[in-house]
Amino acid sequence: ASSTLNAPQAQVDSLMQEVADEAGLELNMELPQSQTATIGSASAASSEQDELSQRLAKLRSM
C-alpha cells in the first residue's frame, strides 16, 4: 500500500505527461501560482495579481 507514496518522481512525471498527452494538454502551461487549496476569492485575487505581474514583465522585456 505504501508503494504509491514511494513512486519515483520520474515515474510520476512520465505518468502525468502521458495523461496530459491523452488529454491534449500542454504540461508546461503556466498554472496560477496559488493553486494549493486556498479558498476561492483570496486565491483568485492572488492569481489576478500574478497575471498582472506576468503581463507587465512581458512589456518590460519588449
Binding site: T38, A42, S43, A45, S46, Q49, S53
Partner: peptide
C-alpha cells in the same frame, strides 16, 4: 493570504 496578496 492577505499578506501574500499585499506582497504581490
Amino acid at each position: 493570504r492577505a499578506r501574500n496578496l499585499q506582497s504581490k
